[in-house]
């Protein structure tokens, strides 16, 4: 795929490396000449364009007519919006991604036609909140733009669900235990699977029931 990334300093090195290693043709547009020099040195296979990616003629220089996807990662929400709209409206790029810094802009950008809107602020703050509330969650991934979350929860000695079968545990309706990791083996559980100490439960759930799940699984035995 031909992919254009607009903006982004050091933080895009990992993304750029991973896209190039997967065989995508990458063009990076950056308006800072020092950043461009560093980008060129680190990513020899990428095409680096110096300029303001919110201007149609700069996008044309970056061969936007042949691009399949554009990712807007500048620090200003309004610039990211304009990049995506020009890419779609003038260059017919179907896949447009915008990063937004103000989470309130997520639904605004979607109404204004940006296909995928990512709010790193929102993702990071939700991660932090969950980390603070318990240390027994190992991972929490927002999927489908945060509409679903995947949680990994370790069952410690205080948990009151040890020894119970899954159907006896009163988990909220909008959640399901998809897998249990026990002694490095994956078990696909059924209703009669018993939860034991040290299990890591992998749970798929809607975000609004996250805290209820934690409450049910990790609350201490009275």
């Amino acid at each position: 795929m031909n992919i254009i990334i607009v903006g982004g300093g050091k933080e895009i090195h990992f993304l750029a490396k991973s896209l190039i290693s997967k065989g995508h043709k990458l063009t990076i547009i950056n308006k800072n000449s020092e950043d461009c020099i560093i980008l060129k040195r680190l990513h020899e296979k990428a095409i680096i364009v110096l300029g303001d990616g919110t201007k149609p003629y700069i996008l044309e220089d970056a061969n936007a007519h042949y691009a399949d996807m554009i990712i807007a990662l500048t620090g200003k929400d309004q610039d990211n919006l304009v990049v995506c709209q020009i890419a779609f409206g003038l260059f017919n790029i179907k896949k447009t991604f915008a990063n937004v810094n103000d989470p309130k802009n997520v639904h605004i950008f979607k109404e204004l036609g940006v296909k995928t809107v990512i709010s790193t602020t929102q993702i990071i703050s939700s991660l932090l909140e969950e980390r603070i509330s318990t240390e027994d969650i190992h991972n929490l991934f927002p999927i489908e733009e945060g509409n679903i979350t995947l949680m990994e929860i370790d069952i410690n000695e205080d948990s009151r669900v040890i020894g119970k079968k899954l159907f006896e545990i009163d988990l909220p309706n909008d959640s399901i235990v998809g897998c249990i990791m026990r002694n490095n083996k994956a078990i696909i559980p059924r209703g009669d699977t018993t939860v034991t100490l040290g299990d890591r439960l992998i749970i798929l759930a809607l975000p609004n029931v996250q805290s209820e799940i934690l409450h049910t699984l990790l609350e201490k035995v009275e």
Partner: peptide, 27 residues
Amino acid sequence: DDNTNIMVAEIAKKIYQVPKVIARLYE
């Protein structure tokens, strides 16, 4: 800033249906 003008003009037009929206664009 052109892009700020574009963003707020679009919000005014599409989300709040302001009847007349005008934006200044340098570019």
